[in-house]
């Protein structure tokens, strides 16, 4: 701070500090605080405000776990949606990891540098297109009479078109695609720093390809795996547009539930509470990953 004063003078420094303060407080702290406050209220009519029912309560949080009894609306299976969001996000994370690891290894250690750079650009270009458009593209690709089914039928792999979009499959495919790069780059960066001699030394000492990866490459890439998993899981759990476009009524995502509580049920307290439960889920996942992969916040920041 003293350094800033010396460098920019009192007026400018105070102006910058004030701007930062306003930004943090107005844009970050206050909205959260309002949401937290909401989440402990009951959803009351205007006439009930300030009445005996207007007290702080944990009901909104508890309602998720109390199952269907408390729910008066047609969306009575919030908890099932919550669970589906957890396993769905975990599945997306796992699929992303399985898809990205070989590609990241190839790009980082096998491909000649120019080709790796070229392929990385090819990977990035589709992501210059808006996420909604890309998801719509998958909607078309996976449609009942869409190109994928036509192709598979023409090749003879299937006899009748598959309803890709009716189960969770479409959502998982769409999200895997949408968040692929968030797994790819942490993995690529982590593997890239591995000394090639380590791989050759392991090989020379008799390790099979599988052993080389299990004992040398993956342990080295662990921070990258952790970061990639955290990114993809959090993005998947909080994704709205992909399940909205590629999901079916039976495969709603928790974000959709939150949206519905806010804007269709007009129950902002419940919506807020659910939003914080989702936040809690993401924080818990991050902590589990950090523990599991024995990486610290500094590793992740890298």
């Amino acid at each position: 701070m003293a350094e800033l004063f010396r460098r920019y003078g009192t007026t400018l420094t105070l102006a910058m500090a004030a701007a930062t303060f306003v930004w943090v407080v107005m844009m970050v702290v206050l909205p959260y605080f309002v949401m937290v406050e909401y989440s402990f209220h009951r959803n009351l009519t205007v006439s009930e405000l300030g009445g005996p029912k207007d007290v702080y309560t944990l009901e909104n949080y508890a309602s998720l776990f109390r199952g269907t009894d408390l729910s008066a609306f047609e969306f009575s299976d919030d908890f099932r949606v919550f669970m589906r969001t957890i396993w769905g996000s975990a599945a997306v994370t796992l699929v992303c990891l399985l898809v990205c690891y070989p590609v990241a290894y190839y790009l980082a250690k096998i491909a000649p540098p120019e080709r790796a750079a070229f392929l990385l650009v090819l990977l990035v270009i589709p992501f210059w297109i808006n996420e909604i458009l890309r998801t719509f593209a998958w909607f078309i690709l996976l449609a009942y009479n869409g190109p994928l089914n036509v192709l598979l039928k023409a090749v003879g792999i299937i006899d009748a078109p598959v309803r890709w979009l009716s189960g969770s499959g479409g959502v998982i495919i769409g999200m895997t695609y949408a968040f692929l790069l968030f797994m790819m780059f942490p993995l690529y960066n982590a593997i890239e720093t591995l000394d090639r001699n380590q791989v050759e030394a392991a090989r020379d000492l008799g390790a099979s390809t599988w052993k080389v990866h299990w004992r040398v490459v993956i342990p080295h890439a662990k921070p990258g795996v952790a970061v990639g998993c955290i990114m993809v899981f959090v993005l998947a759990a909080s994704s709205y547009i992909v399940p909205y476009l590629l999901g079916s009524p039976g495969t709603r995502w928790f974000t959709q539930t939150i949206y519905e509580w806010f804007f269709e049920a007009s129950d902002w307290p419940r919506g807020s509470a659910y939003a914080f439960i989702l936040l809690g889920l993401c924080v818990a996942f991050i902590m589990v990953m950090m523990k599991l992969f024995k990486v610290g916040l500094t590793d992740i920041a890298k």
Binding site: N197, A201, D204
Partner: peptide, 9 residues
Amino acid sequence: LIFQNLALF
């Protein structure tokens, strides 16, 4: 093989 940079794990 013993590598120039040893390549210990």
